[in-house]
Every structure is written in structure tokens, then in C-alpha cells.
């Protein structure tokens, strides 16, 4: 569906994307995980044909965005990071006028709107002004709008950023259904839980480059241990205490507020820490996540 070879994007002196290779197969939920400024959105904009690549090769549906942008866009659904809804129109009209941009007959657009409002659970808000919707509802409306042309690829740039946990789960549920219906999903996120929940395959991006590629579980297996023991000591003590416990784990990360000890058996690590006469204020054993993968690969956390 999408293939990129050595894809680059620069803005003046700033290199947003520094040569990435990506290949997305049909029906896959493909994620770009990385912190703000990693080059995820720039990559999405190039795929959506609204940002000409500076270098490298990009093909979407086998076509070149520079040549066949409108043809590609007819088959893409785009859910941008910032809402671009017409806040003065009602929910129904937002979908209606958008469907017409794709050259769909009026009657068919109307049929699809019924279906999509139902799908994103906004049927009873059809006549509501966009301004009166909650953040989660606006996002669902944007998703509905991006589906009006029944796209083969749905591009979602940070689909749940800024939403409360409940609203996020509603979105995830809808996206999961789309995935089951065979729609190829392409999404960017800086939330590791979102990437774990939705993505079959993902790339980790940092500073314009891809630093890892695989399935969520595969990445965790390859770049982290099964479990993580988190130790919380007093403020400012973590740096100095790290040396006393680092031999207890395969790997250690020092964060400002805690120590992360990577091991396949977290409980034994905690016991061993206590055995050395150390008494952390709080301890936690958890499974490794993509956050740990990112920390290991870049030395930084995803969300600052």
C-alpha cells in the first residue's frame, strides 16, 4: 500500500525526516511511535500528498504523490492532529459537504452519513453545532468525516492526544473495528499504550530516523527484558544509589524520580535490593512496555 525508500524532508536547515524506509502492507495497523518532533507528522503529511518529499522515493497505492496526488487522496482518509471541522456548520453538514468533495452523488453521501454517524455514535447529535461537541465527539466526527470516501488507508495523526481516558477508549474501540473490517490504518502516536493496543507493526522514530521496527511484542522482546522493577527513593538519591544496585539487573535506567531495573524476574530484584539494606519509598514490578523500548533505544522518555 505504501512504500518509502530513503525518504527525506527538510525545512530550510532543519531535517525533519532523515532518510526512512517503510513498507506498509494491506490490512495492517501500522504505527509511528516517537516523541514530539521525531518526524512522524512530516512523514504523514508526505504520505497524504500535502508535503513534497525533499529526497528519496515514496509510493502510495503504487503511485507517486508528486504526480498523482489527487488520485491518491481520493482513496485516503485523513484524520489530522488538529481538528479542521467547520465549527459553524452542524455535524451532518460537515460530513455532507466533505463527501461531495470526493465526487460522490448526493444520495450516496446521505446514505453514508447515516451509517457513519451510527458508527461513531453521533446519530443523536446530527443537528448539533460542532462548537457544542466535547473533544471526544469532535474527534469521532473527524474520524467519521475521514471515512466518508470509504478509504483504503486511514491516516490518523495523534488520534487521541488531548482526550480523557474514557474518550480515548471509545476511539480505540472504533479504530479496532475498522481494522477488523480490513481498513489499513496508519497512525502516529506518542502514547505507548495506544501503539500497543492498536498496532500490528510499528516503527520507533527519533530525530527524523527509524530506530527500530517490528511488532509491539517483538520490539519489547528484542529491546527489553520481560519485567521491570521500579524503585523510588528520596529526591536526588537515585543517581548515587544506582551504582549500588546495577549488578542486580541486566540493565538499569536512572530517571529523575525513580530507578528502572530490567530483569526477567522483577520480584527477585526487589528482594535482592532489600537484602542489601536499601529501603525504597515505593516499589513496583511490571511488564516491559514500548516506553522501555524507547528509553533503551534513545535514552529518553516518550512524553516529557
Amino acid at each position: 500500500m505504501i512504500s518509502a525508500r530513503g525518504l527525506r524532508k527538510t525545512f530550510g536547515d532543519f531535517e525533519a525526516v532523515r532518510g526512512i524506509d517503510v513498507s506498509v502492507r494491506p490490512g495492517v495497523a501500522f504505527g509511528f511511535l516517537g516523541p514530539n518532533g521525531a518526524g512522524k507528522s512530516s512523514t504523514m503529511r508526505m504520505i497524504c500528498c500535502v508535503s513534497p518529499p525533499t529526497g528519496g522515493e515514496l509510493r502510495v497505492f503504487g503511485m507517486d504523490p508528486a504526480q498523482d496526488g489527487p488520485k491518491i487522496k481520493a482513496r485516503l482518509g485523513v484524520c489530522p492532529q488538529e481538528d479542521t471541522l467547520d465549527v459553524e456548520l452542524n455535524v451532518y453538514d460537515n460530513l455532507y459537504v466533505y463527501g461531495r468533495y470526493f465526487g460522490l452523488p448526493r444520495a450516496e453521501v446521505k446514505g453514508r452519513i447515516e451509517e457513519l454517524l451510527d458508527f461513531v455514535q453521533l446519530t443523536d447529535k446530527a443537528k448539533a453545532k460542532v462548537d457544542d461537541l466535547s473533544g471526544g465527539m469532535k474527534r469521532r466526527l473527524t474520524i467519521a468525516r475521514s471515512l466518508i470516501n470509504r478509504p483504503e488507508i486511514l491516516v490518523l495523526d495523534e488520534p487521541t492526544t488531548g482526550l480523557d481516558p474514557q474518550a480515548r477508549h471509545v476511539i480505540w474501540d472504533r479504530l479496532f473495528r475498522l481494522k477488523q473490517a480490513g481498513v489499513t490504518l496508519l497512525l502516529t502516536t506518542h502514547y505507548m499504550d495506544e501503539a500497543e493496543q492498536l498496532c500490528d507493526e510499528l516503527v520507533v522514530m527519533d530525530q527524523g530516523r527509524i530506530v527500530a521496527h517490528g511488532t509491539p511484542l517483538g520490539l519489547i522482546r528484542d529491546h527489553s527484558t520481560r519485567e521491570v522493577a521500579e524503585l523510588r527513593f528520596g529526591v536526588g538519591e537515585h543517581e548515587s544509589l544506582a551504582a549500588k544496585v546495577e549488578d542486580l539487573a541486566e540493565r538499569i535506567e536512572v530517571l529523575p524520580d525513580r530507578l528502572l531495573l530490567y530483569s526477567d524476574d522483577g520480584e527477585s530484584v526487589i528482594e535482592a535490593v532489600h537484602g542489601r539494606g536499601l529501603t525504597p519509598a515505593a516499589t513496583l514490578v511490571r511488564r516491559s512496555s514500548l516506553e522501555d523500548v524507547f528509553l533503551h533505544l534513545t535514552g529518553r522518555t516518550l512524553v516529557d
Partner: peptide, 23 residues
């Protein structure tokens, strides 16, 4: 309901300047 990908009419790129504006 679940999303139905069956496609009765296909979205298209506009064939010209006026046909695009008419959308």
C-alpha cells in the same frame, strides 16, 4: 453497526478545474 467497506460508487480525482470547483 460495523463499518462496511463495500463500495457502490468510487471517490475520484476531479477531471478538471470546473468539475473540481463544482464539488
Amino acid at each position: 453497526t460495523d463499518y462496511a467497506p463495500a463500495t457502490p460508487s468510487t471517490p475520484t480525482a476531479p477531471s478538471g478545474l470546473v468539475s473540481g470547483a463544482l464539488r
